[in-house]
Design a protein around this nucleic acid. Structure first.
Length: 431
RNA sequence: GGCUAGUUACCCAAGUGGCCAAAGGGAACUGACUGUAAAUCAGCUGGCUCAGCCUUCGGGGGUUCGAAUCCCUCACUAGCCA
């Protein structure tokens, strides 16, 4: 369970202090009293937390931003609390679009387990400032509705609650908002209070879209305990073209290898735009300022070599999966995107490369459309036919023209490389 | 509790009895150009045993030769009234 990558990480000593580095990396969108926060970070070892709600069976790239900033603070000697939202996940934070569908308690608790394990991979649980995993269900589950309303609810003004962006956006939309999601901010505020009491936690971090929920905690602590605590919000990562970051072919990029294979993960990073790659290096790697500036220079001078993308893909894949997985992805990429003559690849290289891809077994004579479905390259036979009609399907780099084509050419009498478009690949092992 | 207006494909949004598998835009995907880029241009986007057929327009029921379109009912949403 220990992650070898943890040992090699460090903050960049060339910065005056941690906050400077975080700002340079573009990780600070908003924060409470900056001088006080800087002072706290520089002069003391504080305890801080970030919450992750179990809304899916895996964490995604947005969560990774948070995990890495957590790690950066831990490297500076501060104590991380990774909170998995066993209770908040049951309620669901208000999204700007529409009400969430509630998941069953069983599902959520399963996800809590999974996310906890995943998050643990990015933090050290050893040394002087070990990370701690907490679950807000521990303190909210025993709370009765009456206690909740009397002891906590009394501190929250509805006017303030209504003014939060997440709430007002929903109120102004045709979807409205349920009392359940409206209450979310109270739960998150209460979490901060509870962590402040239990662990003397004085900093909460989170995405800037969570600002309303973050301030809910500081307000509560000020009212109840008379103490002023900190918030640091990270910006939402967006692509330079304004599109959502973290999607590959319309799907989220997950940290769990079962949902996004290490190969697909590697490819995702390799395909980052020139315009974005330097920002990504700052956020998602522990490379120093000097190293990143060097890569920026290389990108400017020889963009086609994509040195920055390659380094980024290597670093992040190593971090999230492993050095071995990253190397396998690199080898597979080199083989499959190589000079084009797949037949020239030797059996072992081809076999392991295909193993990195989504793959399936099939007999000679199987329709190509069926193979496309089995490997997940398309969702339906119609989509497969369409893809062929559009000239976007290749078997062993040969374009397929006929919608009814079947598998017949094999490499080394064993394999076939299936491709949709330029870079979506899958393997077929002949039976 | 009452009244009014809504609920359309991934998102926004047109359509108000047959010409609707459903306009338009966004986004995704594919092709060309490239660097496994960006921009641009073109194509394409329910499913299938694919020149045809099947299932879709909040859920259920009904009217009709025929419904996304009309009626009833339920759910949800917004606004107003209580």
């Amino acid at each position: 369970m220990t992650n070898a990558a943890l040992k090699t990480q460090s903050n960049d000593p060339s910065f005056k202090d941690l906050l400077d580095e975080l700002q340079w990396r573009g990780l600070v969108a908003l924060n409470t009293d900056e001088d006080a926060l800087r002072k706290a970070l520089n002069e003391t070892k504080i305890t801080y937390y970030i919450g992750f709600d179990p809304t899916a069976p895996s964490l995604h790239l947005g969560n990774l931003v948070q995990l890495l900033i957590m790690r950066r603070l831990q490297l500076a000697g501060h104590k991380p609390l990774a909170l998995i939202g066993g209770s908040t996940g049951l309620v669901g934070d208000p999204r700007p679009t529409a009400e969430r569908t509630l998941n069953t308690k069983e599902t959520v608790s399963e996800w809590v387990e999974k996310l906890g394990k995943q998050a643990s991979r990015f933090l050290s649980f050893e040394g002087d400032n070990p990370a701690r995993l907490v679950n807000n269900l521990d303190w909210t589950a025993p709370l009765s509705a009456i206690d909740f309303l009397r002891d906590i609810g009394k501190y929250f003004r509805v006017g303030t609650m209504l003014s939060k962006d997440a709430v007002s956006a929903r109120l102004n939309s045709e979807h409205g908002i349920s009392y359940t999601e409206f209450s979310y901010q109270i739960l998150q505020g209460y979490d901060y209070l509870e962590l402040f009491r239990r662990y003397d936690c004085t900093l909460q971090m989170g995405g800037s879209d969570q600002w309303g929920n973050l301030t809910s905690g500081t307000d509560l602590i000020r009212k109840v305990e008379g103490k002023s605590v900190h918030i640091l919000a990270t910006p939402l990562i967006t692509n330079s073209d304004g599109q959502k970051f973290g999607k590959s072919e319309g799907n989220a990029v997950w940290l769990d290898a079962e949902f996004t294979s290490p190969y697909a993960f590697y490819q995702f990073w390799l395909n980052v735009d020139d315009a974005d790659v330097i920002d990504r290096l700052k956020v998602f790697t522990f490379l120093t300022k000097a190293e990143i500036e060097d890569l920026a220079k290389q990108t400017a001078e020889a963009p086609h070599l994509r040195a920055a993308q390659k380094r980024l893909a290597l670093e992040v894949t190593t971090l999230v999966h492993s050095a071995q997985a990253a190397q396998a992805a690199i080898d597979a990429s080199a083989a499959l995107f190589g000079q084009g003559d797949l037949a020239a690849l030797d059996i072992d290289t081809l076999q392991s490369a295909l193993g990195e891809l989504p793959n399936t077994q099939a007999a000679i004579g199987t329709p190509i459309t069926q193979l496309l479905i089995e490997t997940g390259l398309v969702d339906s036979i119609s989509a497969g036919r369409r893809a062929i009609k559009e000239g976007g399907v290749y078997v062993n780099n040969e374009k397929i023209i006929d919608e009814a084509a079947v598998l017949n050419d094999l490499l080394h009498s064993k394999f076939a490389v299936l491709r949709r478009g330029k870079k979506t690949l899958a393997g077929v092992f002949a039976l």
